[in-house]
Design a protein around this nucleic acid. Sequence first.
DNA 1: TTGAAAGCGCTAACAT
DNA 2: ATGTTAGCGCTTTCAA
Lengths: 387, 387
Amino acid sequence: MTEDSRAAGAPTLEDVAKAAGVSRATVSRVINGVRNVDPVIQAAVRDAVAVTGYTPNRAARSLVTRKADSIALVVSGAGDDPPPVAATAGSTASAASAASATDSAGGGRNGGRQGAGFDGGVGSFMTEVFADPFFGRVVTGVVNFLRPRGIHPVLMFAETSLARDEVVSYLRQGSADGALVVSTHAEDPLPALITDAGLPAVLYARPARPVRISYVDLAHQDGARLAAERLLARGCRRIATIAGPLDVPAGQDRLAGFRDTMARHGHPYIPVAGGEFTEESGAAAMERLLAEHPDLDGVFAANDLMAVGACQVLRERGRRVPDDVAVIGFDDSRAAASCRPPLTTVRQPVEDMAAEMARLLLDRLARPDRPVTSVIFEPTLVRRASA
Amino acid sequence: MTEDSRAAGAPTLEDVAKAAGVSRATVSRVINGVRNVDPVIQAAVRDAVAVTGYTPNRAARSLVTRKADSIALVVSGAGDDPPPVAATAGSTASAASAASATDSAGGGRNGGRQGAGFDGGVGSFMTEVFADPFFGRVVTGVVNFLRPRGIHPVLMFAETSLARDEVVSYLRQGSADGALVVSTHAEDPLPALITDAGLPAVLYARPARPVRISYVDLAHQDGARLAAERLLARGCRRIATIAGPLDVPAGQDRLAGFRDTMARHGHPYIPVAGGEFTEESGAAAMERLLAEHPDLDGVFAANDLMAVGACQVLRERGRRVPDDVAVIGFDDSRAAASCRPPLTTVRQPVEDMAAEMARLLLDRLARPDRPVTSVIFEPTLVRRASA
DNA sequence: TTGAAAGCGCTAACAT
DNA sequence: ATGTTAGCGCTTTCAA
């Protein structure tokens, strides 16, 4: 009963109007929940809608409302060259190098076709992105907020100059009303491109160079303070830290916050080893730290992945965690909970932050006049076994 | 020069036509690359486009062409209840239980707002999805194929009956021209819902109950055969297997293929322990196997995650891999390469298969009359250290 | 080869 | 409270 008219073109407002014995406008009002419609007529219209199996045509609606009811979720990289070890605000590509995914043909058997020919070039950026727990959390938060509002994100990757232009043009076409941008690199040119084009967007994490654009971020320094205080409260006295990349704000802030707090508590000089937010780099940093300071009793790693690497090295070197050396991570990603021992860590509420990003964007779309706003979230300490 | 007209409404075909001194129709022809346009006029039009900063309005175009130039990428679950341990064609949620992500408020500081309020209910399904390397590979393959064609996937999750209806209605509205569906559960009702509505879709993996719909799949039995032959060729004689869930075709086929090959080579009775495609279940299965058959010298696990779990147990029980016990996995996911020792495994070319899915859908959209086609890919053996 | 004109399905004044 | 009407920006016959 609802499908019969499909073949001869989907039912339109006109069809419904005819069936209900009213005008198109009235049907439109009912469908869009505009007041001033007689309850009786409303019922009649709803019946007609059911009978005809009517579904509003989105293109037609968008054409007149001038909104797509759609937003883009953009994962953005750096330059045109293969992106260097990527670095997100508080998370990044995991250690797993992952098969390059370029081999294996897969001869089509049934359909008599060949494999679609996967080109590994584009894949590597995406492989890195998906290897990190961070991305999934962002999507979770965004979808969670958007779905109840009937909108679904369009997934885009912008790791090359061409891809960035495509994002801008996608938005300019009105295919999406705005963009949620997650940058994996400090010098990402995309935010500027978007705002220069006068398009609405919200970023995850403050951009490295100032751009007049809304963003959501974490009070990284406060998080580092939490970690420092926990280590101190635990009685640790020979404390070191594994820092993240210092060209990204999150890396800088976590280090600065940690140092400040330690200094304030009488520890002005803290051994620092640099890492790249990966498990491997965390392990390597831990090795260096241990070589120079064999008597360490506490370590703060600027993210969980590095903390996991550190824990492995500590165990291999015969240190018990947390008895001999306490370890604190950052992010509270999946890696923290599955670490042996489970990681005490500074929680970054990525899902909430991502949802807030979506909310800021929708707010902005609703009232474009209002000034850009950003929101900074407070981290919390999650106590598990490692400290 | 390209931005000036934005404020007063984006430039339209009319504007370009005026600037070029031709008609709208001609501009349209040039833009859509229709032949029969004087080269001189073509140039003039292109100039006018550049000068005005024109971008075609997608809604207007869609309205007349009746295509959205967009497709939905749907990750589909099972019923309305919290999905049971999910199971994909050859992959599934990893062992990591992941923080429930419901705590931590994150008081807005800058914008004076509260956190967006993440509701953990919807998140758990997505958390499982992202914990699995499989999903990222699918997205990689799909985006890789679609992006050069100017189309970007809309990401949707369909783990409840409501969400499934939304997917169908999204498609019916013409918001997307078709769907790429990845099911995480055998009894998924979505494929039937979609085809019943007469909407174009392609599935990853053959549906558990027959539905008249295109899909892409792997010759799982052949893959299992490859694993069996490798174990035999290596000289293993006391061989067991860790099977996946038997309610999903991939689980069944991998077990059947392995058994058949072993039987054909004179090993009619193979010890089997059941797993759930997770690392933990793989470890548990290995324990059981070892308890009953301490003299095992070869194991085939129906996916990499379980193989990783098995390797861990073997090491803990003092068996060297591969010297004492050879291990073969399935999928060639990230987990395989990062396993200690690196896993010999049966490769499922997920990226290629996902790209082929997209290709099948686009083909179908281009010529709706043509019959549904499916493509079965051949697995290959990837030899690493574990066997 | 180009232009004129119709119309895709919908919303939003404006009239009633 | 409801109907009439005028487009939104584009593609596409149909004429010229």
